[in-house]
Design a protein around this nucleic acid. Sequence first.
DNA 1: CATGAATGAGGTTTCATTCAT
DNA 2: GATGAATGAAACCTCATTCAT
Lengths: 222, 222, 222, 222
Amino acid sequence: MPTSEVRTDAAEAARTALVDTRRRQLLNAAARLLGRAGSQSVSMQNVADEAGVSVGLIYRYFANKQELVQAVIEDVLHEFSVRVADPVQDEPDPVRRIAAAFAGYCAVVQELRDAAVLAYQESKTLEPEGRDTVKDLEVESAEPLIAATREAIDAGLIREVDPRVFAYGFLTTAHLWALKHWYFSRFLTHEQYVAEQTALALSAVIRPEHRAAYPDLLGPLA
Amino acid sequence: MPTSEVRTDAAEAARTALVDTRRRQLLNAAARLLGRAGSQSVSMQNVADEAGVSVGLIYRYFANKQELVQAVIEDVLHEFSVRVADPVQDEPDPVRRIAAAFAGYCAVVQELRDAAVLAYQESKTLEPEGRDTVKDLEVESAEPLIAATREAIDAGLIREVDPRVFAYGFLTTAHLWALKHWYFSRFLTHEQYVAEQTALALSAVIRPEHRAAYPDLLGPLA
Amino acid sequence: MPTSEVRTDAAEAARTALVDTRRRQLLNAAARLLGRAGSQSVSMQNVADEAGVSVGLIYRYFANKQELVQAVIEDVLHEFSVRVADPVQDEPDPVRRIAAAFAGYCAVVQELRDAAVLAYQESKTLEPEGRDTVKDLEVESAEPLIAATREAIDAGLIREVDPRVFAYGFLTTAHLWALKHWYFSRFLTHEQYVAEQTALALSAVIRPEHRAAYPDLLGPLA
Amino acid sequence: MPTSEVRTDAAEAARTALVDTRRRQLLNAAARLLGRAGSQSVSMQNVADEAGVSVGLIYRYFANKQELVQAVIEDVLHEFSVRVADPVQDEPDPVRRIAAAFAGYCAVVQELRDAAVLAYQESKTLEPEGRDTVKDLEVESAEPLIAATREAIDAGLIREVDPRVFAYGFLTTAHLWALKHWYFSRFLTHEQYVAEQTALALSAVIRPEHRAAYPDLLGPLA
DNA sequence: CATGAATGAGGTTTCATTCAT
DNA sequence: GATGAATGAAACCTCATTCAT
C-alpha cells in the first residue's frame, strides 16, 4: 500500500518543515530583541512573546537559553559568510573583489542592523566551546576578503600588507556603521559611508601605478 | 569660634576625600570584575566582595546598579579622553599628532583590555539619558584625533577626506585589538599591530609628495 | 442479523483485549522506570517512550498521572496478594503455611525489587481515596499470613501472640531486604536472609514442645 | 580597647547563633512538610512559607534544594543515633540494653512520626554521594543495638544469631509503627505495640534457661 | 558610617495535560 | 485510535535593593 508510505513520508516532510519554520521563527524573534534592547532583554518569556508562542515550546527546539543565543549568533555569522562569498564569485579583478566583499558585508550589517552587532558582541557571554565555534565562523566569513586581498597583492595591484590585518580592519569598518550610525547618520547616508570607507581602505594599499584604474572606487581620493 | 569652622571644613574635606576614595575603590573593583569574568559576573555582591566592603555600602555611593555601570563606562571613556589628548599636546606636526593620538588610544585599550570592550558593549543596557552622556564622552574622546586630521588636511599634508569618518574608523581599529586579539595575537604583537594599522590608515591619506617625510610611520608601505 | 451482532461482539472483545494489553504495556513501562531510576524519572513522556507509544495515548487509558501511579501500585500489591495466597493453599501444617507465605512475599520483593519499594513509598503522594484502596489491598495481602498464624495458635503450635502484629512485623522484614539490601548483601545472600528471618520469627513463637518438629525452618536456632 | 574586640566577638557569636537558629527553623519546617504530605509537597516556596521566611533566605543557609533535603535526613538520623545510644549507657544487662535501645528508637519514631520515616525513605532521591553519607549514619545508628546483641550472645544469654540481621530487623519494627499506625492503632496503643514487639523479638533469641529472668520484657510470652 | 540578613520579583526550566491532525 | 506539537502553571534559583543594628 503505497498510500500509507506516501502519507508517512509526507508527514515526515511536514514535520521537518515545521521544525525549520519554528527554529527560524524563534531565531528571528530573539535577533529582533537583541537588536532592540540588548542581551539583557532576551528572556525566554520575551522571546516567546515576540515569536507569539509559549515559553515551553522554545525548549522543544533549543535545549536551553545558551543554545538559543549561540544559534542566533551562528545564524547571523552564517548569513555574513554567504553574503560575502556570493558577489565575490563573478568578479575577475581582485581589487574589485575586495570592494564587492566589503559591500556585501555592509549590506548585511545594514539589513540586520543592531542584531548583527549585538549578536556578535554577545559572543563574550558564551561558553568556551560555543565561543570557539563562533570564532571559526567569524574567521571563515572573513576568508573571501582575505583571499581577494592576497590575490591583489600577488597580482602586484596593491602593496604588500598583511592580508589578515587589512581585511579584518576593513570588515570592522562595516560593523562600525551599525555601532555608530547614531553619529555617522548625522552627516552621511549609508551609501556615502560605504563609498568613503572603500575609498579610504583601497587608497591605503593600491599601488600608485594602478590608482588610475579605479576612479569609481577611490572617488575623490583618486 | 573659628576652630569649629576649621574643624567643620576639615571634616568636610575628609568626607569628600572619603567619598572619592570609595567611589574609585568601587569603580576599580567593578572594572576588575568586568575584565576578569565578563559582564555576567558583575553582581552587586561580587563588586562588594571584590572591593572588600559590604553590599549596603555601595548604595551610599551609587543610587543603584545602573548608575554604577554608567559610572564605570564613563570612567573608562574619561581615561580615553585624557590619554588621547595628552600626547597630542606636544606634537607640532599634525600627521604625527594623528599617529600619537591613535597610539594613546591603543595604549588605553591594551591596558584596560576587557573593561574597555565591555564598558562599550554594555552601553545598550543603559537608560537613554545615560546613553547620551556616553555618546557625548565618546565623541569628545575622538575630538583630538578629528582636530589633528582637520589640521593635516588644512596644511595640505593629507587628502581631503571627511575627518570624522577617517578618525572614527581609525579609532575603531584600536578597539579591534581588544575585540579580536585572540585572532591577531596568533601572528602579531600589539606593537606590530599598532604599527601596521597606523601605516595603513596614514598610507590611505598622506599626499604622495609628503610620503617621504614619514618613513617611520608608513613602514614597509613608505 | 446475527452476523452484525457477532461482529459487534467480536469487535467489543477485541477492544477490551486491546485496552488490557495497552494498560499492561503502560503499567510495565512505568514499573520498569521506577525500578531503573527512581520515582523522579517517572514523567509521562518517559513512560510513553519506555512503552513505545505517544504521550497522548496514555490519556486514553489513564485519566491522569495520579491514576497511572495508583494503578502501578495496585498492580504490585495485587501481585503480592496472589503470590502469597498461592503457596499457602497446599500446605496442611499451619506453621509451614506461615513460612510458605513469608517465602512467597520475599520472592515477589526480590523479583520486583525497586518497584515494590517505590510503589509503597509513593503512597503518600496519592489522593486520600486512592490511599484507602492501597491500604485495603495491603491488609488483604497480609490476610493469608494472619490466618495461618491464627490457626497455628488455635492448634496450640505457637504461643498466643497477636496474629496481626506478628504477621505484619514478619512481612515487613520481607520489605527490609528491598530497602536495605545494600547492607545485608554484604554478608548474606537473599536465601540466607529469608532463612534467618524465618528462623527468628518462628523461634519467637513456636511452643517449646513443638520446636523439634521444624528443624528445617528453625535452622541453628532449633 | 577591649570593648571593640568584645563587641566584635559578641557580634560573631550572635551571627553564629543566628545561623544555627535559621538552619534549625528551616530544617524543622521542611521536616514538618515531609511528614505532612510527602516529598512532593516540599517546594522551596512551601518550606519558606512554613518557616515564615522568604524563598531567597533559604539559599543563604542551603546551597540548593538537594542540600536542604539531605540535611533534613541527616538531622533525623543524627537524632536516632543520639537517642538510641543514650539509654543504653546505664544498663548493665545486655538483654535489657537491647530492649532499651529499641525503646529509644521507638520513642524517636513516635516523636518525629512521619517526618522520620519519610525523610528516611526520601534517601532514594538523593545523589549517590549524599546517599552514602545517609547509609553511614544509618549503620551508625544501629551500632548500639548490634553491640548489645553481640554482648548478649557472648554472655550466653541469647542464641547465636547474626547480630546485624537481628538488630536491623528489630529496628525496622520500630519504623513499622510510623508506616502502619493507621492499621495498628485500630487495636493497639504505641506502648502496647512496643511491648509486643519487644516480647516477640526477645522471645526469639533468649535461651530457655534465661527466659525466667525477663518476665517484664517477655510479657505473656514468658 | 558600615554591615549583611532579609526580601521578593523575575528569570530559567520542567512537565502534566490538551487538541488539531 | 494514535500522534506529538503546543500550552502554561509551577518549580528552582538569582540578585538588586532595603533596613535594623
